[in-house]
Design a protein around this nucleic acid. Structure first.
Lengths: 333, 333
DNA sequence: CTGAAAGCGCTAACAC
DNA sequence: GTGTTAGCGCTTTCAG
C-alpha cells in the first residue's frame, strides 16, 4: 500500500543505495539519475519512513513538549510559538498535556523517549523529579520552561518570577492597598512570586500575614472558589494578586457575582498576559511574560543542545513587564 | 547509553525473543522467568523503542491532529479533550498547527505519514484537497473534524453548522434586528452558517443583502478590523453574527473603542462557546459547539477505524446550542 | 518453555 | 557512478 525504498529503486531501475542518496541529497551520481529517481518518488508518492531512518541512528527531527494544560491560554500560546519556531528549523513538535497528574507526567516522558524525540521541552511542574533524572542520565537533551531546574543541572528558561511577584505587589502597594491576598499555584514559579510579594511588603515596611497566601490549581473555576474561601475565612482584601490570568479571571467573575465593583471595591492583578487579559472588562492588569520570545528562545536552545551536546547549561531569565489595564486602582477604603 | 532488548536479554540470561514476549505479555513461559526479566527491565530503566516495533508492522499508537491554529481556544480546548480521550485508549497525539497555510498543511500531512501515525484527525480547512486524497489512497484512516469531507468519502464530525447559523440569526431576528451583518471565515463550516443566516432571514420574510456578508480569518485583531470596515462601508447594523468567538471578541472590543454600548447599540452573537465567551463583559451570547463530546467522539471513531478498517463512513452532526448571555438584546432603533 | 533466524525500511561504509 | 551488505531494535514464526 505504502511504497518503500525498494519500490522506488525497482521502478527507477537502480539500487536502494542510490535512492537513499537522492533522499538525503548525499553522495555523487549523474544528474540524470538523480532526476529520474526524484520523478519516480514523486509519481509513487513515496515518503521515506522516519522510523526506519531513526533506527539507523539518525534523529527523528521531533521535539517533545510537556505542558501541564494545553487549554490554558498561556500554554497554548506558548505551544504555538514553539511549534512555529521549531518548524522553521525543520523540527516538529509532539505536545503532551500532563494535567498536573503525576501518572501522566511519567507516562508521557516515557512515551516521548520511546518515540525517540531528539529533545524535550518541559513546561510542566514535575512532581516526580526521578523521572526527569532518568531522562538526563540517558543523555537526552532537555530544557525546562517556566519552571526551574529542580536540582539537575539543566538549562532552564523562565521569566524572573521573583521580580514579577515583586512588581505586581508593589503596584498594588503603591496604590494604597494594605491588605493584599496572593493566590498562588503549587509550582516553583509561584514560590518565587510569593517571595517577591513578601519582599515588596518588606520594602514598604509592611509585614504580610501568612494567612494572606492562598494556593490553588490554575483554572477559572478554582479562581472563583478561591475568592469564596478568602471571604469565608474572614479576609477582606482590597487587592488580590493572582499568580496567573486564569485564576484572575475567576476572581473577577466571582467578585462580580458577589456584587463587588472592580476596581472600586477590589483591585486585581494577574500574571502571564494571555489573551484572556485583553478580553475581560475592565481589561486585566497583569504581569506580562514575553511568551513569544521565550518560546523562540527555548527552541533555539534545545536545538543547539541537540546539535552540540554537553553544552554549558544556563539559567535564562526573561524580564516580566507590568501591564496596567483596568482592574487595579487606588485603594479608597 | 540507552539499553536495548539485547542488553536486557544478556543481563537476564535469556534470548531477546523471551524479552520480547514479556514486553508484549504474549507467549508462555515460566512465571519466574517473566518476573526476572521484568526486574531487569526495571533496573536498567529499559524502554522498548516504538520505532523499532513500528517497523515490524505494529502500530505507533499515535494519532495526528491537524488544527488551523492551536492558540485559538476552540482548538486548544478541542485538542485537550482529544488528548485526554486518546490517552485513555493508550494512544498519544501529535498536534500540528497549520496556520491556515497551504505549505504547512502539506508539510505536516507528509510528516505525520512519515512518522507512521496510526490515524489522523483533520480539523484544518485544507485548501489543497489533493494532499488529503494522497492520505486516503494510502489507506491511512482519517476523519475530518469541524469541516466536511470535501468530496472524499471520509467520516466527518462537526456541529450542524447550518442549524447553528440559523439559530444565531433567528435569535437576533427575534429580538427585532433587521440589519444583521455576518462575519464569516473562509471555511466550509462558515458557508453553511451563512446559508443558515440566509434561511433565517427568508423565514422571517426578509432578504439579506450580499453586502451584509463579510469574511475574515479568525483572530481578535481581524474582528476589530472587520468592524471598522463594516462601518467604513456604510453598513450600520444593529446586530452582528460573528462566526466564532475570537472574531466576536474583536468586534466587542472595537465597538467599545468606537463608543458603542453593548448590547444597547449593537447586539453581538458568536460561535463556539469557548472560554472567551465567559470572560467578556457582558458575557458573549454564542452558539455552543459541544467540544467535549465532539472530541471524544472523534477519537472513538478514529480508533475504531484503525482497528477495523474499511468501516462505513459516516457524517456525524452534533447539535449546536444557543447560549444567551449579555451581548444580545432587543433592538431599539 | 525458550531460542534461532528472518525480516521491517533505511543508512553508511565499502566494493565494483 | 552505482550496487552490496551489514546492521539499527524489535516481532514473530518455527524448531528444539
Amino acid at each position: 500500500m505504502k511504497p518503500t525504498i525498494y519500490d522506488v529503486a525497482k521502478a527507477a531501475g537502480v539500487s536502494i543505495a542510490t535512492v537513499s542518496k537522492v533522499i538525503n541529497s548525499t553522495g555523487q551520481m549523474r544528474e540524470a539519475t538523480r532526476e529520474r529517481v526524484k520523478e519516480i518518488m514523486e509519481k509513487l508518492n513515496y515518503q521515506p519512513s522516519l522510523m526506519a531512518s531513526a533506527l539507523t541512528g539518525k534523529g527523528t527531527e521531533t521535539l517533545g513538549l510537556l505542558v501541564p494544560d494545553i487549554s490554558n491560554p498561556f500554554f497554548s500560546e506558548m505551544a504555538k510559538t514553539i511549534e512555529d519556531r521549531a518548524h522553521e528549523s525543520g523540527m516538529s513538535v509532539i505536545i503532551c498535556s500532563t494535567d498536573e497528574n503525576v501518572e501522566k507526567e511519567k507516562k508521557y516522558i516515557e512515551l516521548l523517549q520511546r518515540k525517540h524525540v531528539d529533545g524535550m521541552i518541559v513546561a510542566s511542574s514535575f512532581h516526580n523529579k526521578k523521572v526527569l533524572e532518568g531522562v538526563a542520565s540517558r543523555g537526552l537533551p532537555f530544557v525546562m520552561l517556566t519552571t526551574d531546574d529542580s536540582g539537575l543541572g539543566v538549562t532552564s528558561i523562565s521569566v524572573d518570577d521573583f521580580k514579577g511577584g515583586f512588581e505586581a505587589t508593589s503596584h498594588l502597594l503603591s496604590e494604597g492597598h494594605q491588605n493584599i491576598v496572593i493566590i498562588a499555584e503549587y509550582a516553583k514559579s509561584s514560590k518565587l512570586r510569593i517571595y517577591g510579594y513578601l519582599e515588596a511588603h518588606a520594602e514598604h515596611g509592611l509585614v504580610s500575614s501568612e494567612e494572606n497566601i492562598f494556593r490553588t490549581v490554575a483554572s477559572i473555576e478554582n479562581g472563583r472558589e478561591c475568592l469564596r474561601q478568602i471571604f469565608q475565612k474572614g479576609r477582606v482584601p482590597t487587592g488580590i494578586f493572582a499568580c496567573n490570568d486564569l485564576i484572575a479571571v475567576g476572581v473577577i467573575q466571582e467578585a462580580k457575582t458577589m456584587g463587588l465593583k472592580i476596581p472600586e471595591d477590589l483591585s486585581i492583578i494577574g500574571f502571564d498576559n494571555t489573551i484572556l487579559a485583553t478580553t475581560t472588562v475592565p481589561g486585566l492588569t497583569t504581569i506580562a511574560q514575553p511568551i513569544t520570545e521565550m518560546g523562540k528562545k527555548v527552541v533555539d536552545v534545545i536545538i543547539s543542545e541537540i546539535k552540540n551536546k554537553n553544552q554549558t547549561k544556563e539559567r535564562i531569565l526573561f524580564k516580566p513587564q507590568l501591564i496596567i489595564r483596568g482592574t487595579t486602582a487606588m485603594n479608597n477604603r
